[in-house]
């Protein structure tokens, strides 16, 4: 029989292995950020940000894609926010746990798991074709808003639940109605958490590709209204890279994508921490 390894020795070996695997994983993240930054940052100039793509993106900047991304974020949030926050308020303030809330929650969780390609198919079949909205920021925004719903519902619900119950009791004891209590006491206290959900939604709009290609299309024109087709930064990057149109511009776009996502996630994280601090 082989000699048994001393448990403490074994622990030391395992610990070293686990730490190196963790280091490797975190290394990947930093490598991705550094690689894209080193290749992409030199491309980013004021002109790159403020001029429209020329010749399918071979030269010129990415202005129209930035505008399209912003429009898309706006439409998606304008739809998803009232729906998601309203749903979360209902689930936390107006009902007790019941079969109904279980069904709603289960549906919301399933929706969160639907892959973007299926969202894209649906958006295409429903908004683009059946409702006749065509490839447009509106079609894309509505599809994206469905995608954002679960996140917004979940973060809002969690932050509403973190508001101390006593505050509601006090408000009710002063003869204040439920809805007034929600708007004057609960929502203000839950605000940072709600903002976190919204910020995560913005990040999702920036990084999404499959849904956008199917619903917003990939027109490079500067969109003038929500009924116009357009191309978001992520789609632009995908097309530049996949068709090999312009590597420098692809790296530049990727750097912008990564940096904005990084910035957005950090601010979401910061907001969440502020929120925790306030509650505790």
């Amino acid at each position: 029989m082989a000699k048994r390894i001393n448990p403490l020795m074994l622990q030391r070996i395992v610990k070293a292995q686990l730490w190196s695997l963790t280091g490797f994983t975190i290394g990947i993240l930093f490598f991705i950020i550094f690689f894209i930054s080193i290749k992409g940052l030199p491309q980013i100039t004021l002109e790159f940000l403020t001029s429209n793509p020329v010749d399918m993106g071979r030269s010129g900047g990415i202005f129209s894609t930035i505008v399209c991304t912003l429009y898309l974020i706006f439409v998606s949030l304008m739809i998803a926010m009232p729906l998601g926050v309203g749903a979360a308020i209902y689930l936390t303030e107006y009902t007790r746990e019941s079969r109904l809330t279980h069904i709603i929650r289960f549906g919301t969780e399933c929706l969160a798991g639907i892959p973007s390609i299926i969202m894209g198919l649906f958006g295409f079949a429903f908004f683009v074709m059946a409702l006749g909205l065509g490839w447009s920021i509106l079609s894309g925004g509505m599809t994206m808003s469905i995608m954002l719903l679960p996140t917004i519902i979940r973060t809002t619900e969690e932050s509403i639940k973190a508001v101390p119950y006593e505050l509601r009791e006090v408000s009710f004891s002063l003869g204040v109605t439920r809805w007034q209590t929600v708007t004057k006491v609960v929502l203000p206290s839950a605000l940072p958490g709600i903002v976190t959900g919204i910020v995560l939604g913005i990040a999702r709009c920036i990084e999404e590709t499959a849904v956008i290609i199917f619903t917003v299309g990939s027109s490079l024109r500067l969109p003038e209204s929500f009924f116009d087709s357009g191309r978001t930064m992520a789609v632009h990057f995908y097309i530049l890279a996949r068709e090999g149109i312009s590597m420098p511009n692809a790296y530049g776009t990727a750097a912008i994508l990564i940096l904005s996502i990084l910035f957005i996630n950090l601010s979401a994280y910061y907001l969440a921490r502020q929120f925790l601090k306030k509650i505790c």
């Binding site: 993240l29 991705i32 990084e207 992520a234 990057f237 890279a241 990727a254 990564i258 990084l262 996630n265």
Partner: peptide, 8 residues
């Protein structure tokens, strides 16, 4: 890592 766009 989850936030990095899948196209990247």
């Amino acid at each position: 890592l989850a936030g990095i766009p899948s196209v990247v």
